[in-house]
């Protein structure tokens, strides 16, 4: 498939919708957390206030050009992940640029933002930022193991690495979903998802109060605004990815929202139930059950 300029506006629209869903979920999740703690919790539209507020900050500082570019890298990575993701199955308008890449692109694009952010945080000269990044990197190296295994298992099962084709292969009812046809891979993938969603028990990277909040300690105002934009887009991109490869994708936005929300709830629920791991504990955890499950997943293909 070749590039069509009309893709651009449609992709941006899709991106915006994803962003809105992300903002909504970002309001919704703390609400859940609050309800679990018997609080009323934030207003569901609170993220929008915070968002605007961050862009309304009048003064700002910069530690250098990498510091300045860090959030740009971060958001580019997040947006890129959405732009190369087929959002709605069968829709030309919302298939974005999925023809230009496949799962591998998605997987490695994830690191684009991570790396840029890490570098930006690094240039702030704040030791806690570096500590946070070190923790994050250490954790991600193992959290990716089950994810990669699950991906490989799914790719081998459907004989393709292309996300669109994997979605297409799952159409025709719940019985065709990877969740049903390959439950082990799905379980592995869902365990991996826990590790990358920055929820407890795997949120020692941010660890508020201990290393204030890790990497973004020095970021504020507009920078933080851009990072917040990414916080709405990036997890959504991951969720949609999981939806696409394990849960049959979505044929319209309602299904996408529903499935996305359900998948998002999984790490949230685990997060409110379990306390936080130290980094070495989480590394060891990923090297046990998820790894074995993952090996089982590829062995069964």
């Amino acid at each position: 498939m070749n590039f069509d300029p009309m893709k651009i506006p449609w992709s941006l629209l899709g991106l915006f919708i994803v962003f809105c869903i992300g903002m909504f979920i970002r309001g919704f999740v703390p609400k859940i957390t609050a309800r679990v703690g018997k609080r009323i919790g934030i207003r569901i539209y609170q993220p929008w206030f915070d968002y605007v507020k961050n862009f309304s900050i009048q003064t700002s500082i910069t530690h250098g050009y990498m510091f300045y570019l860090g959030p740009v890298f971060r958001l580019t990575g997040g947006i890129g992940m959405v732009l190369f993701m087929p959002l709605i199955h069968g829709s030309w308008y919302f298939s974005n640029f999925a023809f230009a890449g496949d799962m591998v692109l998605f997987l490695y694009l994830m690191f684009f933002g991570t790396l840029g952010m890490a570098l930006g945080a690094g240039e702030s000269g704040h030791p806690y930022s570096a500590i946070g990044v070190a923790r994050g990197l250490a954790q991600v190296t193992v959290a990716e193991i089950p994810l990669v295994l699950a991906m490989l298992a799914v790719a081998a099962q459907h004989h393709t690495l292309s996300i669109s084709q994997i979605v297409a292969a799952q159409q025709g009812g719940i019985a065709h979903w990877t969740m049903v046809t390959n439950p082990v891979a799905t379980a592995t993938g869902m365990l991996a998802l826990l590790g990358s969603m920055m929820n407890s028990p795997f949120n020692v990277v941010l660890a508020p109060q201990e290393i204030p909040i890790g990497p973004p300690t020095e970021y504020h105002g507009t920078f933080l605004g851009i990072l917040t934009t990414n916080r709405s887009i990036f997890p959504m991109a991951k969720i949609i990815f999981f939806m696409n490869i394990f849960f049959g994708g979505a044929t319209n936005w309602a299904i996408l929202i529903l499935k996305g929300w359900l998948i998002y709830m999984w790490p949230v629920i685990v997060g409110v139930v379990f306390p936080r791991f130290r980094v070495d504990q989480s590394i060891r955890w990923f090297l046990k059950v998820p790894l074995l499950l993952g090996i089982l997943a590829v062995a069964l293909v």
Binding site: A34, R39, I40, G41, D50, T217
Partner: peptide, 11 residues
């Protein structure tokens, strides 16, 4: 529950 008024604490 001050959160419901848009109050939050940052580190």
């Amino acid at each position: 529950d001050a959160y419901r008024y848009g109050i939050n604490w940052r580190a």
